[in-house]
Design a protein around this nucleic acid. Structure first.
Lengths: 154, 154
DNA sequence: TTACCTGCAAACAGTTTGCAGGCCG
DNA sequence: CGGCCTGCAAACTGTTTGCAGGTAA
């Protein structure tokens, strides 16, 4: 049951929901594709595989994935939301290049620990957090021009 | 020129823009009111002071304040954006109670330092960051029931 | 058979924009 | 007086929802 696609089927089954071909396709593509997909990006890929799928179904399935604890909604400050798969015990934050849009997943024990302490010092018990670091990557700093200009989608 | 309202006039003047009564009112209220106002909240307060101001003007003025470097747009995961005044050299992050919505401004040197190091370890030069801690405050944890807000989507 | 699902389109919320008239400088 | 501004409403974008027909279990 490690496979997230199976985990989804499991969730579907144990909640009296239906395992439809549309959901299977969307979920499969979501977990196979690169991370941090926006709903529209996912919709386009899904659409390429099956012309007849409506975007409402993509939205609904994505929300279902979040309910199932298999995906997380992210907001990088764009108009649209993005989603990333949740892999067990692999919490991380994001480091984004302001120039080329490169998005690196990062994690630092010390920061995590201090966050707990900081929250505690205000009487809060920490539930979760969201942290995004914005900077310029080495390549872009050295005038690197790999991909075309303009920030890439995250 | 420490007064942000004056700083705004300064910005207006030196950019060939006009210092209208609407802008003055909006800016004044923005800096006097509590922090983290949403556009709608600000609009309501402004509206109470002058029935004839349209919300487009509030949106435009808020954007102007950001351009002037006097305000910052924040996204706490709600549908709407929020804005906070930028006071020179007073950087901080946010600690939010998932239950009552209390919003505390926090800052931790150690975290800031580790963020720099973390970014550097990936070859990035850090430009800025965004960090929000979600938890439950002491009051809400001890059964306190103020207002409900519902858990924050990540 | 019975819910649950789906695609479609309309509805929505927040935000932006076009326009005709108004006012600062 | 000229160009920036304003209020209004319509347009837009991302997301949600109502509905009639379809389908998994």
């Amino acid at each position: 049951m490690q496979n997230p696609v199976d985990a989804f089927s499991e969730y579907i089954a144990s909640n009296g929901l239906k395992n439809t071909p549309q959901r299977r396709l969307i979920v499969e593509i979501f977990f196979e594709s690169g991370k941090h997909l926006s709903t529209e990006e996912l919709y386009n890929v899904v659409r390429a595989a099956d012309k007849h799928i409506g975007q409402a179904t993509v939205y609904r399935t994505l929300k279902l994935l979040c309910d199932a604890g298999l995906a997380k909604e992210l907001h990088f400050g764009e108009a649209t939301a993005r989603y990333e798969p949740i892999e067990d015990d692999s919490h991380h934050d994001h480091l984004i290049c302001n120039v080329c849009g490169k998005n690196v997943e990062v994690m630092d024990e010390e920061i995590e620990r201090r966050q707990e302490e900081l929250a505690a010092s205000y009487g809060f018990s920490l539930v979760s957090h969201r942290m995004i670091l914005f900077g310029v990557c080495a390549n872009c700093r050295s005038g690197g021009q790999d991909k075309a200009r303009g920030p890439e989608p995250l």
